[in-house]
Amino acid sequence: MPPWFKKKQQRGFGSGDAGYARLVDNSAVDLSHGVILYLEDITVSFDGFKALDRLTLSIDDGELRCIIGPNGAGKTTMMDCITGKTRPDSGSAYFGQAMDLTRMTEPEIAAMGIGRKFQKPTVFERHSVFENLELALKRDKRVRYSLVAQVDDEVRDRVSDTLQRIRLEGEAERMAGLLSHGQKQWLEIGMLLMQEPRLLLLDEPVAGMTDDETERTAELFQSLAGQHSLVVVEHDMAFVASIASIVTVLHEGRVLAEGTLDKVQNEPQVIEVYLGR
């Protein structure tokens, strides 16, 4: 049997395709052991190059975790695996105790309560800021509901709350494409908030922000930790230092070190990877 057929079967034709976009009460995620995300032995290879090599990682509920690592360490690939964009060649990824992420599609995973911010800010440039947030709102996302959905007062309230939080109050009717880079980053974070996810994956959230904006982002993230779990990939060490309690260092698709920032910064392997001896 040619290899691609096997691939397809793994994806699981119609593995609960029908119900994924239904409004899910994501408190249903089984957090009985206090762990919200558990990756075990994940391996992904592209044409022989191993982007992830038996990666094992676990995130506690309510934790704010920073992931650092040099380019090509596999940070983005890891996020792709968690959100269903890339299927791991082997290994398992669990959301809570019972949800196998490797068997779910991207929309299913998103509906279960994992939100993701891309490295490059991705908003709907030809929609207004308001519409961007409205589309992100946690609602039933199946076609038949979208066909009859209306913008009611509840939607307006929720959107204006979030607008305030991301400091875009005056921009509601503006085209998202006209925002500055930093504003787009904030809008995307705002869209994540509208989704009310349990777990937020943020890929370089402060890239292109001014110092002031970065500081406010740090405040926002800290206020989110607790009710939400956050995984932040970032190169800006000052930012990492300002928010994280625990830092994970990835290198060549594996966890190189884990612990407080001070601790990992003093590990010899980490220094070697970053400075090259």
Partner: peptide, 16 residues
């Protein structure tokens, strides 16, 4: 439809 990249596919991050 089964294999959108064709017989000899490139794999990796840049595919999408």
């Amino acid at each position: 439809q089964r294999r959108p990249q064709g017989l000899f596919a490139l794999k990796g991050r840049f595919v999408d």
